[in-house]
Design a protein around this nucleic acid. Structure first.
Lengths: 149, 149
DNA sequence: GTACGAGTTCAAGTCGACTTGAGGTCAAGC
DNA sequence: GCTTGACCTCAAGTCGACTTGAACTCGTAC
């Protein structure tokens, strides 16, 4: 794997240099060393950044994502934890499907105002009965993702 | 629909009164009026809060969610926007599926360190080629949702 | 050997979504 | 008619994830 200057990493990954520095500061990624002042990264950092991006998209915090890699920066993840995360994701996928279906129904439903549509209310009620309650916010990445180089 | 005191709404929905006040302040929900000082809500607010909860879980900001309801607090959503949101959700679901599969693979893969596993690298590469790049964080709700009363 | 541009540090600022704290008010019950 | 407890307002604080700005330092090209 080639050695990449921070600028190149930024350009190829789309992650701003300031963010790369921030990620290094919190131990999410690490640089090989410096060339003068400039950080040099192993090419693998690009894959790692993809992983980070996906983790963020999945709603994990940077700390959680960092926890998925070992202490030493190698991804060295307890299998059970991974299965647990996958399970979380699965539940989340089901939730999103429910919401998607609700949105689609509402889009096609002719009721004048959606709270008056019995189907809408039923979907909503079913959904809340199944699962949903208040949970204070956590961070997440946006829904629409850009294409990477 | 019965008229509910803020305390009752808080208790039934699991949303703290402080948050309900905040939501009213930003126009996400509205109260019928007051009994003395106390806000009184229409029972429908519970359904609306479910919807808000789902929207948050799906990664929409409170402003976006508010935008799904009309200016006057009635849910009065342009159909096209709804379809667009549903599409966003769909893409997000696919992303989460990819990540879930990656996690599952990693959990079962015998490679000593995951970045060395060719399958892992391939999955990651495919995923990033398909879609993933940097996007600064937006807010989202946690993955594991509590059951509502 | 000097200018340039891309990088550096460090502190502070921002944004969304709330929470917390201090001090005040009101309806209901005794 | 006074106490109590649940609510009120308003300002400020918090947390994660970054970004921004000022002042500085290199390696490279001329």
């Amino acid at each position: 794997m080639p050695v990449l200057d921070i600028g190149e990493v930024a350009q190829r990954s789309g992650v701003p240099a300031s963010t790369l520095r921030y990620y290094e500061e919190i131990g999410l990624i690490s640089s090989l060393g410096r060339h003068g002042l400039r950080r040099q990264f192993d090419g693998d950092v690009l894959l790692k950044l993809s992983l980070v991006g996906m983790g963020k998209a999945a709603g994990f915090s940077l700390v959680e994502i960092a926890g998925m890699f070992g202490q030493n920066g190698q991804p060295d993840i307890p299998r059970a934890l991974l299965h647990a995360k996958a399970g979380e994701l699965q539940r989340q996928i089901l939730d999103l499907r429910t919401l998607r279906d609700i949105l689609r129904h509402v889009a096609d439903c002719p009721a004048p105002t959606h709270l008056e549509c019995p189907t809408f209310r039923a979907l909503l009620k079913a959904a809340s009965r199944k699962r949903l309650a208040y949970h204070p916010s956590r961070k997440r990445a946006g829904g629409a993702l850009k294409t990477a180089g």
